[in-house]
């Protein structure tokens, strides 16, 4: 407690804080936020495992379709349609595994792993932003070419 020369001075609210560390504003991880992170741990691990299964299924499908493909253009189309999404899914899987591991550490009581969870969330969302950004750019570019050449959805509006 702070000491003053006035013995009748009422106690300050800061005297009730005890030895708690000084916190700048409310930008802290409260127990409720930790509960949300731990509740998500099982789901994140499940999503990582399902993504791995999904990648395995896509690889199977790629191999099956590759057997039926005839000509270089058909194979190139398959690579673009299936192999590229598989490669992108693997990048997501790496980030999901990091997210799941960090969530499980928080679940086990290691509250310092919150930083790793935030890092994994940021990494996952950043990758999704890049993928969506590139897709949107390619789509806009092809749309502009289609509109410019007068072939925009002519197969629909005939």
């Amino acid at each position: 407690m702070a000491t003053t020369t006035n013995p009748f001075e009422p106690p300050r609210t800061t005297d009730l804080d005890g030895d708690a560390p000084a916190v700048k504003g409310p930008r802290v991880v409260v127990p409720e936020a930790l509960r949300e992170l731990t509740a998500a741990a099982g789901w994140v691990r499940g999503l990582a495992r399902l993504t791995a299964v999904s990648i395995a299924v896509q690889v199977l499908r790629f191999v099956a379709d590759l057997g039926h493909a005839r000509g270089a253009s058909a194979i190139a189309l398959l690579v673009l349609a299936i192999a590229l999404p598989i490669a992108i899914s693997i990048l997501f899987l790496i980030r999901l595994n990091r997210y799941a591991s960090a969530s499980e550490r928080v679940w086990g009581g290691a509250t310092e792993a919150v930083g790793a969870v935030i890092n994994a969330q940021a990494s996952y969302l950043k990758l999704a932003s890049v993928v969506v950004g590139i897709s949107a750019g390619v789509f806009t570019f092809s749309l502009a070419i289609a509109i410019g050449s007068g072939r925009f959805f002519t197969w629909i509006y005939r």
Partner: peptide
């Protein structure tokens, strides 16, 4: 860490301030 053993640690943990990098 054993599964579930962190529940008490989480519930009693004081609010943790985030670092600048976090």
């Amino acid at each position: 860490t054993a599964p579930g053993s962190g529940t008490a640690a989480r519930e009693t943990a004081p609010p943790r301030p985030l670092t600048e990098s976090e």
